[in-house]
């Protein structure tokens, strides 16, 4: 369920894009340093966003070094070393392993089992470093599993579990401006859960997996995925944009010291484009 929180790249200035990449690389390096080499394979944009947001509260620019790395051995890259990179890296590992386990359980992708096993060491260390974050994530995913088993049809209620989880994680990392961050985390989390549900719709129908949209809007097998998507499109769009506008409203209230132009790009343009891209996915494929 990852990689949805991305900037709108064509709208970024080159120096903003470089800054974004340096956080991305910084997170990757932190993953390697703290949570084993293998965990870097699960580096994702959502945690880069977390790292950017948390660091925006710090007055000083992050220390940067120029290094090469295993993924680009010939070009050296600028790497931002921030205080929060370790936290973001831990969240990355914790979420990655849990989501892998979900994929194996729901879709019977047994070939992913070795990956879970290899993430084990990093996962245990992340859990040791941030026991509360691990507890938040494990608790929330357990609650989600129960709701999935019960085929919960209340969209708000299911999304709430994931939203509260993300909100807790963001607040724990930020430690200040708690109310605005709680709101921001909640609605970004709600959006993430919903956009993931929309994205997985066809796949879940095919594999007969739980997807809250199928129960909220009562999917009928004779209807077919394309017609169903068309029927619920407006409702889903409303819900996605509602959360985005709430998240953006909370975002506007946070006193950021830096990174603001990149984050504004993500909040107001990147997420919007992502939403449209996923909502119109079916049209494109057809």
């Amino acid at each position: 369920m990852f990689g949805y929180i991305v900037p709108d790249k064509p709208e970024l200035k080159i120096r903003e894009f470089d800054r974004f990449k340096s956080y991305y690389c910084g997170l990757c390096k932190a993953l390697k340093k703290e949570y084993t080499f293998f965990s870097r394979m699960f580096l994702n944009y959502d945690c880069t966003f977390l790292s950017l947001v948390l660091d925006s509260l710090e007055e000083t620019a992050p220390a940067c070094t120029v290094e090469s790395c295993a993924f680009s051995p010939f070009t050296k890259k600028c790497i931002a070393h921030t205080l929060d990179a370790k936290y973001a890296a831990a969240i990355n590992v914790l979420l990655a392993k849990n989501s892998l386990k979900d994929h194996i359980r729901d879709e019977k992708k047994l070939y992913l089992l070795p990956a879970v096993w290899m993430l084990g060491g990093g996962y245990r260390k992340a859990k040791r470093d941030f026991p509360e974050a691990a507890e938040t994530i494990e608790g929330a995913l357990k609650r989600l599993k129960v709701m999935e088993a019960e085929k919960e049809a209340n969209l708000d209620k299911v999304a709430d579990v994931f939203a509260v989880m993300l909100s807790d994680l963001v607040v724990a990392g930020a430690n200040k401006e708690i109310r605005a961050f709680r709101h921001l985390g909640y609605h970004v989390g709600r959006w993430l859960y919903l956009i993931d549900a929309v994205d997985d719709l066809e796949n879940d129908i095919k594999k007969r997996c739980y997807n809250p949209l199928l129960y909220r809007y009562v999917y009928d097998r004779s209807e077919g995925p394309a017609a169903f998507r068309a029927r619920i499109n407006e409702e889903v769009r409303f819900n996605l944009y509602y959360s985005l506008s709430e998240a953006a409203a909370a975002y506007d209230l946070i006193n950021m010291k830096k990174n603001q132009s990149i984050l504004t790009n993500i909040m107001y343009s990147g997420l919007k484009k992502k939403t449209e891209q996923i909502l119109t996915k079916a049209d494109r494929e057809a």
């Binding site: 709108d8 709208e11 409303f238 944009y241 509602y242 985005l244 506008s245 709430e246 953006a248 409203a249 504004t264 790009n265 107001y268 343009s269 919007k272």
Partner: peptide, 14 residues
């Protein structure tokens, strides 16, 4: 009001 926030958000930026 539930829709006005969405519209405002969608019209912002770009």
């Amino acid at each position: 009001a539930m829709f006005s926030g969405n519209r405002q958000y969608q019209s912002y930026y770009g």
